[in-house]
């Protein structure tokens, strides 16, 4: 299949399918993430990338035989390595003997959150999540460094505005529906953000949904209008502020005499401290994710339109 657009469509179907699969396997949080990231934002960003590069795949100029050999050797070694591991789902695997029972039995007393996934993500594995947030932030910086477009000249701006005006004057129904829907999407993103302690959800999903609402606005009303609504400098600052908030919580815990990201010392009561810490770092994650997604979309899309 050489039509990249069709490939993106099929990958969207794949995202939807795998999310239903996760739901059937009872992994609600994973399904939530797959829903918002895999099926939604990822295919949108891939579409913008496809519009930058052209629609059909180039014909191959070289035969990657050596690469295939290397891949086969590495894969064989990896499969050889898995032979020592315990069987899939076996009850006496180390993870089922030591880590999982602790999370399931003690996390409610230690963090006071009913959703075990959130307490593992934000509290027990706080370092990993910090790493993920930094990776997302780095992706945003990379896009800014590679694709940032300079200021356009005045006449170009007028032309682009009139093109957008013509294009978006036609979509009356779309505009009105979007206007009705966007407040609900933003509200739902906030619900996901702050309800993540109790049900499925959390900072990653909420950030992506928030960004999706802004991207929807930008697509229907045109990029210049969206840039007037969402200030670019503010978005850049926000993406850094999320990471700083996350790291700042860790520094405060160190100043209070605990380890890095040890939320017990944030408040007098360990459970209250855990709750406060998890809330704050989820907020940081949400800010960074939303801001970086908006940055990536604005830069890809702006480059395509030469704005």
């Amino acid at each position: 299949m050489r039509d990249l657009f069709a490939v993106v469509m099929l990958s969207g179907i794949f995202g939807l399918l795998s999310a239903s699969f996760f739901v059937a396997m009872d992994a609600v949080d994973v399904a939530f993430t797959e829903a918002s990231v895999g099926a939604g934002i990822a295919s949108l960003l891939m579409l913008t990338a496809v519009t930058l590069t052209g629609r059909s795949e180039d014909s191959e100029r070289h035969r990657p035989m050596w690469a295939l050999v290397v891949v086969f050797i590495t894969g064989g070694l990896l499969i050889y390595g898995t032979l020592d591991m315990p069987y899939f789902g076996s009850a006496d695997a180390p993870i089922h003997l030591h880590v999982a029972p602790r999370y399931i039995n003690d996390s409610m007393q230690e963090t006071g959150l009913p959703n075990i996934v959130t307490s593992v993500l934000a509290s027990y594995r706080g370092f990993d999540t910090f790493g993920e947030v930094v990776v997302i932030f780095t992706a945003g910086i990379g896009v800014l460094a590679l694709l940032r477009v300079g200021r356009r000249s005045g006449i170009h701006r007028v032309m682009a505005d009139s093109i957008f005006y013509l294009m978006h004057e036609q979509h009356l129904i779309l505009r009105i529906t979007t206007k009705i829907l966007i407040p609900f999407i933003l509200l739902f993103a906030l619900y996901v953000q702050f309800h993540g302690d109790f049900g499925p959800g959390g900072g990653f999903q909420a950030g992506v949904i928030f960004a999706a609402a802004i991207i929807l606005y930008a697509m229907v009303f045109g990029l210049p209008t969206a840039r007037r609504v969402v200030n670019r400098t503010f978005v850049r600052l926000l993406s850094a502020a999320g990471v700083l908030l996350y790291g700042g919580v860790g520094v405060v815990t160190m100043l209070n005499g605990g380890n890095f990201l040890d939320y017990n010392v944030l408040a007098g009561d360990p459970v209250a401290g855990q709750h406060l810490g998890i809330l704050l770092i989820e907020l940081g994650v949400g800010c960074t994710v939303a801001a970086v997604m908006v940055i990536i979309f604005f830069n890809f899309s702006g480059r395509r339109d030469n704005l």
């Binding site: 129904i173 529906t177 009705i180």
Partner: peptide, 10 residues
């Protein structure tokens, strides 16, 4: 009810 007809229209 909102989304499906609008998507078809577009």
């Amino acid at each position: 009810l909102f989304i499906s007809p609008v998507a078809s229209h577009a």
